[in-house]
Design a protein around this nucleic acid. Structure first.
Length: 189
DNA sequence: GCAGTGATCATA
DNA sequence: ATGATCACTGCC
């Protein structure tokens, strides 16, 4: 199967659907000397102004502005004084929702992933497409629905009733070998 | 179990 | 200007 770059039509859907569908897709980061691909293994959905775990539940601010954009751009923010979090914005304009990418390839943990792939604010509010240097592909990797576990989200205990909602998706068991391998190609363009 | 670390935002 | 908070990690 020919790889398909996921475009805005993929992301402009309910955050829960996108979060689940992203499991098994390939996150691609372009560097000067080649591309790095990693299969997404863990995601979390943050859904709308009423979700107390969603940053946008505290209002539309400079930081959360990208979440209000139409699905298909990145929302990257800094936390705990040292970590960058990578989120794909979903749903439609003015409805703040996003999917946190918590694990891909050999990197398990959202801050490990962004550190390894050198992802920081340079991608915030940028389109999820090759043009920005960071995108997602469907490379035909099928993940059986029974291998996708649903659990509550991590570290959102402060969010009241929303803390218990099963908005986290994890591939189990994790893939072996190929995932996270660095693929060096000739420079594109 | 908890320190580290600093941007962000509400409060003043 | 100040202080609280925080979608984490790694060490104790």
């Amino acid at each position: 199967m020919k790889p398909r770059v996921l475009d805005a039509s993929f992301f402009a859907r309910p955050a829960l659907v996108v979060a689940k569908d992203l499991i098994g897709k390939s996150l691609v980061r372009r560097f000067d000397d080649g591309d790095v691909r990693a299969i997404i293994t863990e995601t979390e959905a943050y859904i709308g102004p009423h979700d107390l775990a969603c940053h946008a539940s505290k209002g539309r601010t400079a930081r959360t502005e990208p979440m209000f954009a139409p699905g298909g751009c990145w929302y990257v923010y800094f936390i705990y004084g040292m970590h960058w979090m990578l989120n794909a914005v979903t749903e439609g304009q003015d409805y703040p929702a996003a999917v946190l990418i918590r694990g891909a390839g050999q990197w398990i943990g959202p801050a490990k992933l962004t550190k390894a792939l050198e992802i920081s604010k340079q991608f915030n509010a940028q389109p999820i497409s090759p043009e920005s240097g960071l995108w997602i592909e469907d490379r035909g990797n099928k993940v059986s629905p029974r291998k996708i576990k649903r659990t509550p989200r991590i570290n959102v205990d402060y969010a009241g009733d929303w803390a218990a909602k099963p908005y986290r998706f994890v591939m189990s068991p994790l893939p072996e070998g190929e995932a996270g391998k660095r693929v060096v190609k000739s420079r594109v363009r």
